[in-house]
Amino acid sequence: MIDGSHDTSHTEDRAAPRPKEEKRAFAEEKASLWRITFGPAIWAIHFVASYGATAVFCAKFGHGTESILPFRLSVGAATLLVLAAIAWLGWRSWQQWGYLQTGDYENALANEEDRTEFLGHAAFLLSIVSFVGVIYTGLPVLFVESCR
């Protein structure tokens, strides 16, 4: 529950109205530390699932050098799905960062807008790393043809 919703403080932090004022109510819901871990968490789930599926499949059904094409295809398909999910997350965080509108790369100021954009920025970068990580994890099923 690492998010802002438990912020029970009554004291408000309202500086002068800012250009993105109307978007702020929405943006505050996005202020969660968890969210920046979603990308890598999807990588982790995909990684563990791929490893677990291979371990079980090869222990119970794989024999020597026999081809395991259907298995490889299913892991490949799952990998593409996961990549799509991370791409979507990346797109969402790119929007939350809002670099094209604000041109702000540092997000270093003491206000809610910069905090939200910073979290978007970090989440966006993490999505890229996770995306590359998932591609890496997918490579073995592309190249290795059996359970040997």
Partner: peptide, 8 residues
């Protein structure tokens, strides 16, 4: 371990 697992 199977080569695929090592690959991951």
């Amino acid at each position: 371990l199977p080569t695929i697992s090592l690959g991951f």
